[in-house]
Simulated assay, not measured.
Amino acid sequence: MTAPLDPWLLERLVCPATRTPLRQEGDRLVSDAAGLAYPIRDGVPVLLVEAAVRFAEAK
């Protein structure tokens, strides 16, 4: 499991598809607006739409 991201950083990250806030859920950043989950790899968020999975698939 990935350690929580720094709150300061998490407040500034947005979904690249919708420009809405993200929330961390385990080793993913979730965009409720887009229904996408972006992976966090080695502590680094991968905010590429191509790397995201549909949120229903991420659970």
Rank of each mutant, 00 (worst) to 15 (best):
G35T: 07
D6L: 12
A52K: 01
L9G: 00
A58M: 04
P45G: 06
P45F: 03
P45K: 03
G26L: 04
L36T: 00
A37Q: 07
L9M: 10
S31W: 01
R28F: 02
S31C: 09
T2K: 13
E57D: 15
L36E: 03
R54C: 02
D32E: 15
V49M: 06
R23F: 08
Y38D: 00
A52G: 00
L22I: 07
G26T: 08
L29S: 00
E57M: 14
R41E: 12
P45H: 03
P16V: 07
E50I: 01
P7S: 09
T18A: 08
P21R: 05
A3L: 13
L10G: 04
A51L: 02
T2S: 14
D42K: 09
R19A: 09
R28M: 09
L48M: 13
D42T: 03
S31F: 03
T18C: 09
L13N: 11
G43K: 00
R41P: 09
W8N: 13
L10N: 07
P21H: 05
M1Y: 10
Q24V: 03
C15F: 06
A51E: 11
A33V: 12
K59R: 14
R12E: 14
P39S: 07
V49I: 11
R19P: 00
A34W: 07
L10P: 05
D6W: 07
F55D: 15
L10T: 06
L22C: 01
A58G: 10
M1I: 11
R54N: 14
L9R: 09
R23H: 15
T2V: 13
L48C: 00
D32L: 13
V44K: 06
A51K: 08
G35E: 08
V14M: 03
L29V: 05
A56F: 05
A51N: 05
A52L: 02
V44W: 11
P7E: 07
Y38T: 03
D27R: 06
R28I: 04
A3G: 12
V46I: 15
A17E: 15
L10R: 04
K59C: 10
V14T: 14
R19H: 13
V14Q: 09
L48F: 08
A33S: 15
P21V: 03
A51R: 10
V49H: 00
L47S: 01
V49R: 10
V30F: 02
P4L: 10
R54H: 12
A34D: 06
A3M: 14
V44Q: 10
A52D: 04
F55C: 11
L29D: 04
L9S: 06
C15V: 03
L48H: 05
P21M: 05
